[in-house]
Design a binder for these strands. Structure first.
Lengths: 170, 170
DNA sequence: ATAATATGTCAGTGTTGTTGACATTCCAAG
DNA sequence: CTTGGAATGTCAACAACACTGACATATTAT
């Protein structure tokens, strides 16, 4: 076999990619995402919540005081779908729903102590796996990992991502 | 602020990772996975199929002649769930269901021409995005990407992944 | 013969997404 | 001040896709 035929390499500045290499990445995404959600899923199952609840808790924790509309566009679901989830979280005392001070139509969402507690438990489980994977792979791999993921996002979703990330190291 | 406080670095051979760095990875996974499935989802919606159909087509294409049991453990769903999907694919003439030659209890699954056609359309859409992301990120990033994803998988799922990947460059 | 395996199927349930319709509340423009 | 539109909440119906449990049927292994 010819050298480099099955390897990534630069040809005229362009990465040479076989279908098999791309398939490998596709399958890696599939299997890795399962691992990515496995640990929180176990905790959620105990409390009879689902992934949708986790996502809501996560992004409310991330942007306390965010509005429903904002959360809707971040999560990319319909308001009816989100409302069902928020309803249970509010009724269960995990999320606070405060009428806006400036614009009283808006509702500002935040976590209660109980909400923070559950969110922490879920996040810790997910971060533990992430940390292990990162350490196993090394710093350079982590950098590449994030770079490819960012390049894979839809531009609209990337805006939300950038917005969340930008507030980090202020 | 102290130098390197917010950066990945090696400390006594261990990667130093802040919660924010880990959160960034978690959010990157979330948003990237949405992009990852967006293109096939559009094609599937036209034919009133779902992601479950895509996954079945993908892994049957990947391992032609595979058995139902094998596919079940790869996908990690119940046989009832898989059966619903396979039933429609077989009835629609996309998948063949052949009685085993050695063991007649087994059913060997493969794609028909029509099945291959749809699987190709789905794969092409997904690979196009993957290829663009890979080229944008560069070869080193791609290597890191795969390394982290592999480290994130559950050991049981990783076996399936390794098995699929190993047959690639034979 | 009997047990185990591989598959298929029926019925019921739950989560999470969708559309469509409609009410309420509030801001802003005329 | 009225009217239009925006933000939110809620009701109902529906679909995809996962689950459990139970049961039937072939086939193979013991």
């Amino acid at each position: 076999m010819a050298q480099g035929q099955n390897r990534s390499e630069h040809t005229h500045g362009l990465l040479f990619l076989t279908d098999e290499q791309l398939r490998k990445g596709i399958e890696a995404m599939f299997f890795a995402y399962r691992g990515f959600t496995a640990d929180p899923d176990r905790i959620l199952a105990e409390k009879s919540y689902g992934r949708a609840h986790h996502r809501a808790l996560h992004f409310i924790q991330r942007s306390p005081g965010t509005t429903v509309n904002n959360l809707l566009s971040t999560l990319g679901v319909t308001k009816q779908s989100l409302n069902r989830v928020l309803r249970t979280l509010i009724d269960d005392g995990l999320v606070l729903n405060a009428v806006g001070t400036k614009d009283k139509r808006e509702r500002h969402l935040s976590l209660t102590d109980a909400g923070r507690e559950l969110e922490q438990a879920l996040s810790n489980a997910q971060r533990d796996r992430m940390r292990t994977a990162y350490r196993q792979a090394g710093a350079e791999a982590v950098y590449g990992f994030c770079t490819v993921l960012e390049a894979m996002m839809d531009p609209d979703l990337k805006k939300h991502y950038d917005q969340l990330i930008s507030g980090e190291t202020v």
